[in-house]
């Protein structure tokens, strides 16, 4: 059985890594207004410049963001032992958005003030995670009640975002609208490297935690009786989730349903064991968002639709189906 699990894990890792690598290698060449592949091959402008400065960083950003959103979805589902727990349903994404919009509204430079927006989004996500930890541990809220609390947090944050949007003035209001639409835009390689530097260690930590996440699925009493410090793991897991969601939301704006759709879809394929599900969710989530981004810039080319629209149109019906079949 041990060898069987190891070989399955290797296979899942290989397949999901391959999916991510193939989409990352192929999708930058697709969509938009088309590319002159001859010029690209000869590294001639403008196609080569478009490829290097726009398409590649955009694809890599989609890869990292998809992995972060999908991985945090799988992580929250394990920690709360609830299939509907995601960064969005817990209110983490909305709080990160509120943090980012606050930074855009109040500070000069607004949307381009990358570190500031980033830190504000992180602060928003951390505040909600703090609330979840406090309610879960101090008041012993069930995952169902925490998800209901998430609905309230979502409502409050959305209202505050609308309030800031209304009071921000025309220029800021336009920046906020653009950011709120959510999208994977081209990004400086330096910012991309910084994002990768934050996210990849968290991904590795999550992969190493996956056997313990399995035990967390059995509930606090069972996990504690197997030597797992349930509260510590939960606290660390939520902090890691806040870091993933806050960091990516600051750069891309809110992108819904990735954390719900990808882990659930993959759970049906690879099973509930987080030693298989976590790597599949990370690489699969990355591949999924790269594909969604390619669809977004290809479906109505030369017009481009926000990637959040594509993920919502795919994820919304899936969410309904999930509730139906639960």
């Amino acid at each position: 059985m041990a060898d069987n699990l190891r070989s399955r894990a290797r296979w899942v890792l290989f397949a999901s890594l391959l999916a991510a690598a193939v989409t990352a290698a192929v999708c930058p060449f697709l969509g938009g207004s088309g590319m002159d592949y001859g010029k690209l091959w000869r590294q001639e402008s403008p196609d080569w410049n478009i490829f290097v400065t726009l398409r590649m960083p955009r694809t890599l950003l989609a890869l990292l963001t998809g992995a972060a959103l999908s991985g945090s979805g799988a992580l929250f589902q394990a920690l709360l032992r609830d299939a509907l727990a995601t960064p969005s349903s817990l209110g983490v994404s909305a709080a990160a958005s509120l943090g980012a919009v606050t930074a855009i509204a109040f500070y000069p430079g607004g949307e381009t003030a990358f570190p500031l927006v980033w830190l504000s989004a992180l602060a928003g996500a951390a505040a909600v995670i703090g609330l979840v930890i406090a309610l879960g541990h101090l008041r012993r809220f069930s995952s169902f009640t925490l998800l209901l609390t998430g609905i309230a947090v979502n409502g409050i944050c959305t209202s505050l975002v609308l309030l800031l949007h209304s009071l921000a003035g025309i220029t800021k209001s336009f920046q906020i609208t653009h950011w709120l639409i959510g999208g994977v835009d081209a990004i400086e390689y330096s910012a991309l490297a910084l994002l990768a530097l934050v996210l990849i260690p968290v991904f590795i930590w999550m992969l190493r935690l996956s056997r313990v996440l399995n035990v967390i699925s059995y509930g606090e009493t069972w996990a504690a009786g197997r030597g797992v410090d349930f509260r510590k793991v939960t606290w660390q897991g939520f902090a890691a989730g806040a870091l993933l969601v806050g960091s990516t939301t600051a750069v891309t704006g809110p992108i819904a349903f990735v954390g719900l759709l990808v882990p659930h879809l993959l759970r049906r394929i690879v099973g509930p064991d987080y030693r298989l599900l976590m790597p599949a969710s990370l690489f699969g989530g990355g591949a999924f968002l790269v594909i969604c981004d390619t669809i977004s810039r290809s479906a109505f080319a030369p017009l481009e639709i926000p990637v959040g629209v594509t993920t919502a149109l795919l994820g919304g019906p899936f969410f309904v189906w999930l509730l139906w079949s639960r």
């Binding site: 056997r211 699925s217 059995y218 197997r226």
Partner: peptide
């Protein structure tokens, strides 16, 4: 424990080995 635990009997039993090592996979 929660009745809807999605694991097999073998997988549930193997949770007893967590205190003996935190490697990603169970050993012999």
């Amino acid at each position: 424990i929660p009745g809807d635990v999605p694991f097999t009997v073998e997988e549930v039993i193997l949770t007893g080995r967590i205190p003996h090592g935190r490697g990603l996979y169970e050993n012999d």
